[in-house]
Design a binder for these strands. Sequence first.
DNA 1: GTTGAGCGTT
Length: 314
Amino acid sequence: GTKRSMGDFVKIAENERDDAVEVPVEKNGTLLVSNVAAQFPGACGLRYRPLDAQSYRGVRLVDGVLHPPGDGWKSCVFFVNYPRGWPLIADLRSQEKRKLEESDVVTATKLLCTEPRISDLVVLGLPFSTNEEELKDYFGAFGTVVLSQVKNDPVTGKSKGFGFVRFADYESQLKALSMRHMIGGRWCDVKLPQSKVAQSLCGQDVIIKGSSVHLATAEPKNAAMRRQSRLATTQNTLAGLGAALGIGMNAAATPTSAGGFNFTPAMVAAMTQALQTGNWGNVGMGGGQRQGPEASPPNAYGRPPGNWRGRSRT
DNA sequence: GTTGAGCGTT
């Protein structure tokens, strides 16, 4: 018969109380998130409780592949991790199956891009005399600053008058984004970096309609591709969303794959515009058919107001 | 002020 090892399955449970489900392991000993998501729709990772540790420990996840801990998969039962924003995603999953439409792509894009997420913030208009310590001190009034950068001219070493900050928590970020700032006698603007809108979606494992998808930029094979990296990022993001939505319309157990889905030109246009501008106000609702009750409420997306939580829908 | 709209060597 077929030769099999003891590492063929991993015991996975929703939580400490529920029964475990055995999920198959790949031949190389890894575990695909898509296989976990087939049994636990929405799963984005695993954690476990090592014998020698008081806390949970996360399972290493690289490009949608879960790597076994040192003791192997048989050492204990693993527990499912779900992403932030899962309630909203669950809303999508509960929708009736129907033909994929432009509005689905737009909804998924909004879902990904508007999920509360800590990001570097660009600070424009800094006095040329402001250094990184002063920048950190100023924004420390809004919360813990974990990154402070002032960009300098590589030749002269002088400040270029802008920089970046990053907060430890999202609430501080919202506060800083909600106002203008007087720093060193100049009014400065704090914004989400536009240049990294599309990139911020990449390198993440996201769940759409019950399927796990890793959004990644293909490794540039030559200089020409490197110059086109921004376009490649957009196209790979589109491919990732397409795979997710396509699988969502068929069967949750289908292995995640980037192929086999075709966007309409309208979908590509909507996604591209959304990723480039970060402005959702006019995306997707112009020429497309308006959907019914599953369409998003006006306030759920777009630029979040200060008290927005992203989970307050009932 | 060599300088005031913008977007990051890591």
